[in-house]
Design a protein around this nucleic acid. Structure first.
Lengths: 198, 198
DNA sequence: ACCTGAACACCGTTCAAGT
DNA sequence: ACCTGAACACCGTTCAAGT
């Protein structure tokens, strides 16, 4: 449909025009625009084909999050819809079931596994929302300009690492850094739990 | 201004009406709506009074992130503006300077400190965006309903932990869980670095 | 009964007419 | 020169008129 126009370009009128029908004919299929957007999110979720992952719980979570990120980036504008309507459909929960099962089997409590999954989701979805892949270069340029314009006396640390700051505005290494940090954090949680159990 | 109406309620026409001026008079102050929203973000950033934090690098980052979360939640709708225009002003970078300095002093490389800060920012801002504090109860209810409606055969893990899943939809403990996990992950990064140095 | 064009109540912004 | 109302090109949705 209208990935190419972005969320702002997706209007009932233009969509109807594209489909060569009267604007109001859309209301035969969906009661209002919200319902239509829900259907868009659901359709996108159905596109995801999650192979059952192999390896350690870390490997599995890493795979699931990379896949989630790719799925969200496949349709720019999708993330902005999901930010406005936190929807939960069976299709969306497919990956969550797999990820949480891996954690439970590794020894996490139910509460820990639930919180850990939600944190991973928030991080990954937040990453896509704040570092849109189609505007990384622009964001880097903007970050570099902003850092260079800072009074060095007040911002000594930032002024001395402009390149490093620009590097954080998107891309695979930045995403993987945060993912690794979270998984390492969960690892220490798991070790602590095993220790107190003894 | 119009915190109470949300982003959708903030229109040039209504704002002008509120200010008892003609709609077009606003354009004497800001060239367009984008500029006005930028000014809103900047004003909100200026409200933040960051005391220079004490304690370990972890304590300092924890304080800064709690403060960032509180600042973002103080004005609902602010986060949605910032999601659409990744703006970088000196006011916004105040906390970043403090946080990054703490990490550099603790032994992080520039690149690590930059990536670690960005990850914390993405997590915290993503948390506020995906778990809006004024709709936590609603989100919990929705999550519980969605989990209960799942076919237990296909979703055995999720079906057995509905309460725990609902708990992750917002609140302080969920935020702190993710924050702790990230900081624990950074800790192991720092330890690994110290080890290879010897 | 089903479908849909006209109309309504909104937008942001241009542009020309007022002072 | 400065200010701003009318007008333009859009919205989503209601409602009544068409088939």
């Amino acid at each position: 449909l209208l990935d190419r126009e972005g969320l702002d370009g997706l209007s009932m009128r233009r969509l109807a025009e594209q489909l060569k029908m009267g604007t109001m004919s859309l209301y035969r299929y969906y009661p209002d625009k919200n319902a239509l957007l829900d259907a868009v999110v659901d359709t996108a979720a159905a596109e995801r084909a999650i192979r059952h992952p192999r390896g350690s719980w870390k490997d599995q979570l890493r795979y699931l999050m990379r896949e989630l990120r790719a799925a969200l980036e496949r349709h720019p504008g999708l993330i902005r819809i999901r930010l406005q309507r936190p929807m939960i459909s069976p299709g969306i929960l497919r990956g969550e079931e797999v990820g949480i099962r891996a954690m439970l089997e590794a020894g996490f409590t139910k509460s820990q596994a639930a919180r850990a999954w939600r944190t991973l989701f928030v991080y990954t979805a937040g990453y896509v929302a704040f570092s849109p892949s189609d505007r990384v270069d622009d964001a880097r340029r903007q970050a570099r300009a902003a850092a260079a314009a800072l009074p060095p006396g007040d911002y000594p640390s930032l002024s001395a690492m402009i390149d490093q700051l620009a590097d954080t505005m998107g891309g695979d290494p930045q995403f993987e850094f945060g993912l690794d940090a979270l998984l390492a954090g969960y690892d220490s949680l798991l070790r602590a739990r095993r220790d107190t159990r003894r």
